[in-house]
Computed example of a mutant assay.
Amino acid sequence: MSVQPEITQRDLRSRSKEIMDAVEGGSAFTVTRDGHQIGELIPLRRRRRFVSRAQFAAVSRNAAPVDIEAFRVDQEAAVDQDHGDPYER
């Protein structure tokens, strides 16, 4: 477990832009007041919306192989083949 650098409340107040830029960049800090730890500044986890083709390919290399015929059999078994005409009464 890595130890977060400590910053005082006064440092946070006087160097807020620098510290917040560091947090935005992934750094975390423990805030102290009168020598006592009172809180943590940590970056928010951001969900990635897009994955590049190269990243997808890299992750997919370790995926289990898919048996296409078995997949189709499973799909057909799960789908109601006799759904009928939805507009027919």
Rank of each mutant, 00 (worst) to 15 (best):
S2W: 06
S2F: 08
S2H: 13
V3N: 13
Q4R: 14
Q4W: 08
P5M: 14
P5Q: 15
E6D: 08
T8L: 04
T8P: 01
Q9W: 14
Q9Y: 13
R10A: 15
R10V: 15
R10N: 14
D11Q: 15
L12V: 03
L12Q: 01
R13N: 12
R13M: 13
R13L: 14
S14E: 07
S14P: 02
R15D: 07
R15N: 09
R15Y: 08
S16V: 06
S16E: 05
K17V: 10
K17R: 11
E18Y: 03
I19P: 00
I19C: 05
M20P: 00
M20L: 14
M20N: 05
M20G: 00
D21R: 04
D21T: 08
D21V: 04
A22T: 03
A22G: 03
V23W: 00
V23I: 05
G25M: 10
G25C: 08
G26I: 07
G26H: 07
G26D: 06
S27A: 15
A28W: 11
T30D: 03
T30H: 03
T30N: 03
V31F: 02
V31L: 02
R33M: 06
D34F: 05
D34E: 10
D34C: 02
G35C: 01
G35E: 00
Q37L: 09
Q37G: 14
Q37V: 13
I38W: 07
G39W: 05
E40G: 08
E40V: 15
E40R: 15
E40L: 14
E40A: 14
I42F: 13
P43H: 09
P43N: 12
L44N: 09
R45F: 11
R45L: 12
R46P: 00
R46K: 10
R46L: 09
R47V: 10
R48I: 07
R49F: 09
F50Q: 05
V51P: 06
V51Q: 11
A57K: 10
A57R: 11
A57I: 06
V59W: 05
V59C: 03
S60M: 11
R61L: 10
A63N: 12
A63H: 13
A64M: 13
A64H: 12
A64C: 09
A64Q: 15
P65T: 07
D67L: 01
D67E: 03
D67K: 01
D67A: 00
I68W: 06
I68Q: 05
A70S: 11
F71G: 00
F71W: 06
V73I: 05
V73S: 04
D74E: 08
D74L: 07
Q75Y: 05
E76L: 03
E76N: 00
A77D: 02
A77H: 01
V79Y: 04
V79R: 03
D80I: 09
D80C: 07
Q81A: 11
D82P: 01
G84D: 08
Y87L: 11
E88V: 04
R89M: 13
